[in-house]
C-alpha cells in the first residue's frame, strides 16, 4: 500500500540502494582479492586495497542517511527494521571488505614463492563465498526470506572446506618445512574467506529480521572444525 508521505519511501529506497551498491562493491572486492592471490598480481592487490576506502566511506554514508531518517521520520515497525537492518548490513559488509583487504595484503609475500600448493582449495572456497554474498544480497534486495534461509544454510559448506583446507595445508608444511611461510599466509587467507562467509550469513539473518521481525527458527549451522583440527605424523604416514 502506498504511503501518504512519499518522501519517506524515497528515503528508504535510497538507503536500500546504497546498502545494495555497497554489497556489490564488496562482492567484487572479495573476488578481486582472491584473484590477486591466485595470480600473485601485486597491482590488482593494490587496487583491491584502495577499494576498501571507498567501502568504508559508503558505510558512513549509509549511517548518515539512516540517522537522518530516524531523526526526521520517527519510523516504527517494518520501517524501523528496514533502517536498523541496513545499518547492520553495512557494518557486516564493511567487515567483509576488511577481510578482502587482508587477503590482498598477503599477495606481496606470496609473490616471492615460485609454486604454491593449496590454491585450488582457496579458489573453491572463494567461489562459494562469492555466490553466498551474491545470494544474500539478492535476498535483501528482493525481500526474499526463503532465499536468505537457503544461503544461510550453505555457509556450512564453506566451513567444511575451511576445515579440509586447514588439514591440507598442515600436511604440506609437515612434508616440506620450506612451505611453512606461504602455507601460513594461505591459512590466513582461508580464515578470512571463512569469516566473509560468516558475515554473509549474518546478512541473511538480518534479511529475515527486516521482513519478518524475528530471527531464524533454527540455530546457526557450523561445521568449522579447523580450530580443533590436528594432523599428526601418523596421518601423514597413512597418506591422508
Amino acid at each position: 500500500m502506498e504511503r501518504t508521505v512519499k518522501a519517506f519511501d524515497n528515503d528508504l529506497d535510497a538507503l536500500k540502494s546504497a546498502a545494495a551498491a555497497m554489497g556489490g562493491l564488496v562482492e567484487a572486492q572479495v573476488a578481486d582479492s582472491v584473484r590477486a592471490v591466485v595470480r600473485r598480481d601485486i597491482d590488482l592487490a593494490a587496487r583491491t586495497r584502495e577499494v576498501d576506502e571507498r567501502i568504508d566511506d559508503m558505510e558512513i554514508e549509509i549511517q548518515d542517511l539512516a540517522q537522518r531518517i530516524l531523526a526526521l521520520r520517527s519510523p516504527v515497525a517494518s520501517d524501523l527494521r528496514a533502517i536498523l537492518g541496513a545499518l547492520h548490513i553495512a557494518r557486516d559488509l564493511e567487515r567483509m571488505g576488511d577481510h578482502a583487504k587482508n587477503i590482498a595484503k598477503r599477495v606481496s609475500a606470496l609473490s616471492t614463492v615460485a609454486e604454491l600448493q593449496g590454491l585450488n582449495g582457496i579458489v573453491r572456497m572463494a567461489r562459494l563465498a562469492r555466490s553466498l554474498i551474491k545470494d544474500v544480497l539478492d535476498s535483501y534486495v528482493n525481500g526474499d526470506t526463503e532465499a536468505a534461509l537457503r544461503a544461510w544454510r550453505r555457509d556450512e559448506e564453506i566451513d567444511e572446506m575451511h576445515t579440509s583446507l586447514f588439514r591440507e595445508l598442515l600436511t604440506y608444511m609437515m612434508e616440506d618445512p620450506r612451505s611453512i611461510s606461504y602455507c601460513t599466509h594461505l591459512l590466513f587467507v582461508a580464515k578470512n574467506i571463512e569469516r566473509i562467509g560468516d558475515h554473509a550469513t549474518n546478512i541473511a539473518e538480518i534479511v529475515h529480521f527486516i521482513e519478518e521481525g524475528s530471527r531464524f527458527a533454527e540455530s546457526r549451522p557450523t561445521s568449522d572444525d579447523a580450530s580443533v583440527t590436528v594432523v599428526d605424523s601418523t596421518d601423514r604416514e597413512q597418506g591422508t
Binding site: 500500500m1 501518504t4 516504527v76 515497525a77 517494518s78 520501517d79 527494521r81 521481525g213
Partner: peptide, 19 residues
C-alpha cells in the same frame, strides 16, 4: 505494536500508509 504488529492494517496505519 510499534515494533512488530500482527495485523497488516496496524502496520499500514502506524507506518503512515492509510489514505
Amino acid at each position: 505494536i510499534f515494533t512488530n504488529p500482527d495485523d497488516q492494517r496496524t502496520q499500514d496505519y502506524i507506518t503512515g500508509r492509510f489514505g
